[in-house]
Write a protein that binds this DNA or RNA. Structure first.
Lengths: 121, 121
DNA sequence: ACGTAAGTTTGACGTGCATCAAACAATAGA
DNA sequence: TCTATTGTTTGATGCACGTCAAACTTACGT
């Protein structure tokens, strides 16, 4: 059988990968700088629970922020090497770069997430 | 024999402790913000190798910075809860708050220092 | 007591950042 | 094709930050 185009978005078909640093080019100080902001530390915890579509502010618990501001934070996290974003249609599928971060800084992400668990925004 | 006052500084007599947050009040986002700067991430590694007297720029590998700038970075790290500073005479004895940080965020400091090992400033 | 040395504090300056608003691009749906 | 939706980009604004310079504080040494 040949490939058949599906009607509905499954969320796992490939989409254009937005620009992000190579694993080897991820710099620790840039990660720390990116996460040294309450909003982005919050986003880290959101994406730690799995891939997320829907960048809308309400869904991310950021209803007090303008959508352009959210987009700005997304870009900083992506350019720091923390998240990876696939553009599929009008949606963005964002996920943590767990494997890459573990390869570059073993144990760091786990320790960080565990430390962030009990913290309020 | 009664106590005898020593002529030379031994480095371990008590001095006034500069203001710092309680262990329970240390906030992760503040730590990340403090270390999201090349100079302060460098200082973290310096103090990870043991207590340091002499805040002079040359001794800390910061000869390109003014002494007031170094003092500024010291204060930020101290107020973030990363370092502890005892004032003895004209000197400042700075050390990492290892025990406090481990108690507040178990495993975080170790993972961080290990990640910072291979990084150039 | 006087001068020197170590750090801190304050003020100033330029830059970067978080935020919003508006314009823009691209896609889905009718 | 037209319209609505999703997200990005650009411009503007106010604030925080890194840096230096100068003044100030405190303590050592003679």
């Amino acid at each position: 059988m040949s490939e058949q185009v599906t009607d509905h978005m499954t969320g796992d078909e490939d989409g254009a990968l937005l620009p992000q640093p190579e694993t080897g080019d991820i710099r620790l100080v840039k990660i720390l700088h990116a996460l040294g902001d309450p909003t982005r530390l919050h986003l880290l915890r959101v994406y730690a629970n799995g891939e997320q579509c829907d960048c809308s502010s309400e869904r991310l618990g950021l209803d007090h922020l303008h959508k352009s501001t959210v987009s700005h934070h997304m870009r900083i996290m992506r350019e720091a090497g923390i998240t990876s974003t696939r553009a599929v249609g009008r949606n963005r599928y964002v996920q943590l770069r767990r494997a890459d971060l573990d390869a570059r800084f073993p144990g760091f992400l786990d320790a960080l997430l565990k430390s962030a668990e009990g913290e309020e925004l």
